[in-house]
Design a protein around this nucleic acid. Structure first.
Lengths: 155, 155
DNA sequence: GGCTTACTACTCGGATACTGCTTGTCCGAGTTCAGGGGG
DNA sequence: CCCCCTGAACTCGGACAAGCAGTATCCGAGTAGTAAGCC
């Protein structure tokens, strides 16, 4: 179990877009920046558009641009945009099946196992939500040449 | 992205084994309890054995039994036994590839994106570790007929 | 009658197929820009 | 000289394959119990 590569790609791409600042950048150029498959990256960026993190500009000279500043984008936003908001642990309600399930009265309330796993899931999402991309950008600015390279390559 | 079904199966099976208390129980009977594929459940239980959560008894009248009390088994133990201890987010170091990577000096230290995701990963594992199976067992004991059913079916 | 021994039934454990999702690729609809022609 | 029209190039967006991890299954090695045979 691991997050899809799209999460990593989306995060770096969002950071790159912020360093550029201005107009829309095509998926091809964004992909070239990190040697990613362009078409597949485009697919991931479409999800960010649907989630409201990016806006897409169609046509020639089109591309993607940030829909809002990095301070308003959390890791949780990105992860859920790519992966969906389904729980890490999905209860199959096996407690209701098999010989035990048949001989037990229909359960009332949530499965204890499920609720325990949900607590951990909640902690994960809280930790993701507590970190904005702006904070990560600040860490990167500890090595300021990065921004210069990005602008030289993509600008 | 979601945890494999094996996690759910393992958790319920461990709880059932504790309610029985005594001797080893075969994977077939444990599977029948929740209408699970017996052979595949056995595969998951083997992982719990390797992780030291269960002990297996070979031969006729053999089976699986708890290697230690539920108070000493946390959700994290079970999840990592089944899923492995790999991080939810695995950094592909794409920052070192592509035109940006080539034109940047070799990075020093951990990728900022990776360390941010690791913080969330850590929060998840902490929340898992904070919950023992004994606690879940207590929640289940709110509906005490469960133990009776388990003993009737498996005992 | 008691002990030994061969047999059977049952268990775990790993090697072997199948399925669904992640990953990767391709082509079409739509838009912008440029250039040429006409007023 | 300025405006309009046509064409081409480039973009996103969704439809179409390939690869791999998760899922499921089967068979062999090994052990406990049993029953028969022998002393």
């Amino acid at each position: 179990m691991r997050t899809s590569k799209g999460v990593e790609w989306a995060l770096h791409t969002l950071l790159n877009l912020d360093m550029l600042g201005g107009g829309p950048v095509g998926s091809g150029r964004l992909a070239q920046a990190h040697a990613l498959p362009a078409s597949y990256l485009s697919k991931q960026l479409q999800r960010l558009v649907r989630a409201g993190l990016l806006t897409s500009v169609p046509g020639a000279r089109g591309g993607f641009r940030l829909a809002r500043p990095l301070t308003d984008i959390t890791l949780r936003d990105v992860v859920e945009a790519i992966e969906g908001d389904t729980q890490l642990f999905q209860c199959g309600e096996i407690r209701c099946r098999g010989s035990i399930g048949e001989q037990s009265p229909p359960p009332t309330g949530t499965c204890a196992v499920e609720s325990a796993m949900q607590r951990a899931d909640h902690a994960w999402r809280e930790a993701l939500q507590a970190q904005s991309l702006a904070g990560i950008r600040e860490e990167l600015d500890g090595t300021p040449h990065i921004g210069k390279v990005v602008r030289a390559v993509l600008g």
